[in-house]
Amino acid sequence: MIICSRFDYRVWKQYSRQALILAFVLLIAVLIPGVGMIRNGSQSWIGVGSLSFQPSEWMKMALVFYLAAALSERKKTIHLFWKGLFLPIVVIGAAFGLIMLQPDLGTAAVMGGTALILLFSAGAPIHFFVTIGASAITGLVLLILSAPYRMKRITAYLDPWSDPLGSGFQIIQSLYAVGPGGLFGHGYGESRQKYYYLPEPQTDFIFAIWSEETGFIGAVWIILLFFLLIWRGVYIAMRLDDPFGMLLVFGLTGMICLQSFINLGVVTGLLPVTGVTLPFLSYGGSSLTMTLALAGIVLSASRHMR
């Protein structure tokens, strides 16, 4: 974070294409059997043993760099399809498709959502989003039909108690952690659900344990912190003169916003289960490194505020 904050954020504009190409290479590599590692049913890890990371994390960031650069260059032609939006959309679509091949719906959703936020704020015409929305719904239906486990997650989301030991298990266990927390929680370190009941208590479901231990007060505090972060990010973005900087900061902030919202939504049973980490809080190297790097970049950009 500190390192990133020292760099001038504008270097990311120069290297954005290289970063994107590297990300694509890694994403393709991870799909090659023997190179990528399968964890929890997704082939999304690359590396040896504990020294491994998720290329999709890298891709999320690289895409933001690329889009910030590409869209700021196309500022004048953004309303035109072929000259303006075509290339970015192809890139977004390719990255999305590769991540879905792993498959990792959560990351893909965060990335896709971030891309949409960037396109929207860069000034893409509204009818474009209508088209995207329609095709997204169609695509979602197709995706669910292609992988039955997603359907299960949806039904589990609607009624977790219909299959408490199967598809509803994670949501129920998560609610068992959050619910008993009450107003003040059990106290720090006093979680019960973390003792093997709740899967992934230190990563995806960290917020469940947090609200179990600190209660409603602690949970609201965390949610407010995230909102404060977003508010500050948007504030920085708006105060920048450089369109690239604006889009970059806004995109990174939007990514953190989306990812945290999806994670918290899952934990509280508001959204169907998708494996997304909670920025800053979840345990996990590549996720944390990336998040901190993002924060660093935003900080470096903040030096150029008006």
């Binding site: 619910g179 409603f216 949970a219 918290l264 509280t268 508001l270």
Partner: peptide, 20 residues
């Protein structure tokens, strides 16, 4: 999110605690 968390912890809390 805040409303939802509040619902789970403050309104639904007792029932969930019993089950847990």
């Amino acid at each position: 999110l805040i409303v939802r968390t509040g619902y789970i912890q403050l309104v639904n809390g007792g029932e969930l605690t019993d089950k847990a």
